[in-house]
Amino acid sequence: MAVYKRSYHGYSGALTPEWSRFAIIPRYAYRRLFQSKIMTAFFVLCFVSPLVFLSLIYVANSFGSIAGLFGAKGARSPITIDGEFFLIYLGVQSPLAFILASFVGPGLVSTDLSNRALTLYLARPFSRVEYVIGKMSVLLVLLSTITWIPGLILFGVQSALAGGGWLIHNLWVAWAIFAGFWIWILVIALTALALSAWVKWKIAAGALLLGVFFVGAGLGQAINAVLDVRWGRLINLSDVFAAVWSNLFRMPNGRDISPTSAWIMLALVCASCIWLLYRKLRAVEVVR
């Protein structure tokens, strides 16, 4: 066809349903992410500890039979599968999820902003909220696959091996696994996105994400020591999460943070991240 005969005409293909448009972003993001060998290797490595915990569950439930092979009778497993066991699982998997988020998160929004590509998204029938949900779902799905999904599978395996009585007695543990991981994923995903939006250089955004946790911990200790107070611990997000998780897993809280103040602190962190994203993600930008 001659070039002069080409003229504008509207798109006549099939439209993606409005509710699922956000899913376009993760589809392309995953394709790019898993091109990195280090990223793929680390993602696979994240499944090692669930496998270890799975074998521990198996050993705990079959301890009598295994001991019988060696001639020991009436032996009892030294491993107890209860809330504490799954709290340890949460303690092992959450740093891995954090490292994964600091790999993936900083580049999610910063590349769009530094290349001034946000207008290309928002010029289409695609809202800011959908953009944020789309970018966040990259992290949410990725982190879910290494945290609460294997956690609930472990819980299911234990229920199958230990019987219905154990399941009914420990059903709250399943909720604790689900809620404990979700609050962790939500906070680190929002923090990673907010930092990624405000710090356009993704390396700096990654370093800052680490800084938020480590510097916050140090500053909290310094506040407590210098001002002789206890609320400094609220700045230490690791302690805040520990308080929330202890509350969910019905474990004694060894820290000076009440569960209520910890939940309020996490809500404040989420709210400030959403506000930061709202301020930064706009279809127009004034460049000075």
Binding site: A207, G211, F214, V215, G218, L219, Q221, A222, A225, V226
Partner: peptide, 15 residues
């Protein structure tokens, strides 16, 4: 001294 050692040197100056 504790603040200088654990916060300033290890975190603030490092980052």
């Amino acid at each position: 001294a504790a603040m200088f050692q654990f916060f300033y040197l290890r975190l603030a100056i490092f980052f």
